[in-house]
Simulated scan of single mutants.
Amino acid sequence: MAKYSQAASNKVGEVLHEQKEGKLKSGTGRKVTSRKQAIAIGLSEARKEGAKVPEKQD
């Protein structure tokens, strides 16, 4: 199984909290309702911040 850093885990947690409150927006500006999409956004943001996150899978 892939290893994720604690920083990545924290970022995903923050994003999921935002999504639950209804404040999380996608790149197009629409509200995110899917939990899977919220996790993907969190991992993407963690990657940009330099956290240890495995490469995207196609």
Rank of each mutant, 00 (worst) to 15 (best):
A40Q: 07
Q19E: 09
V32Q: 02
A38L: 05
G27N: 13
K36M: 12
Q19S: 10
K48D: 11
G13I: 10
A46H: 08
G13K: 12
S9N: 11
S34E: 09
N10D: 15
V12Y: 03
K25V: 08
E21R: 03
A2E: 13
G42S: 08
A51Y: 04
E49D: 15
A38D: 12
S9E: 04
K48P: 01
S9Q: 12
G27W: 08
E18Y: 05
A2H: 15
K48N: 04
V12N: 07
K36Q: 11
V32N: 03
G13E: 11
A46K: 10
A2N: 14
K56E: 14
G13D: 09
T33I: 08
G42N: 06
K36T: 12
K23Y: 03
E55H: 03
A38R: 13
S9D: 09
K52Y: 11
L16C: 04
K25I: 04
M1V: 13
G13F: 10
G22H: 01
G27A: 14
K3R: 07
R35E: 14
Q19R: 13
V53N: 05
E49Y: 02
H17Q: 11
G50L: 07
S5D: 04
K31P: 00
E45C: 02
K25D: 01
S34I: 08
A51G: 06
E45L: 14
A8P: 07
E14D: 12
K25T: 12
K56Y: 06
G50N: 09
K36I: 07
A7F: 07
K25P: 00
L16R: 01
A46V: 04
A7V: 02
S44I: 04
K20S: 12
L43M: 05
G13Q: 11
G50H: 14
R35P: 07
G22W: 00
M1N: 11
Q6T: 08
R35I: 14
K23L: 09
E45G: 05
Q37W: 07
K3P: 00
Q37A: 11
V32A: 02
T28R: 00
P54G: 03
T33R: 04
P54C: 05
S9A: 11
R47I: 06
M1P: 10
N10R: 10
K52C: 06
A46G: 06
D58L: 09
N10P: 00
L24N: 02
E21Q: 14
A2W: 13
G50P: 14
V15R: 00
T28C: 00
K48M: 11
E55P: 01
K11E: 10
S5P: 05
P54T: 04
S5M: 03
K3Y: 10
E18D: 13
G50K: 12
D58M: 10
K25E: 10
E55F: 07
R35Q: 15
E55L: 03
K20N: 13
S5T: 07
K11Y: 00
K23G: 01
A2F: 14
R47Y: 05
K52W: 06
T28L: 00
A2L: 13
S34Y: 04
V32D: 03
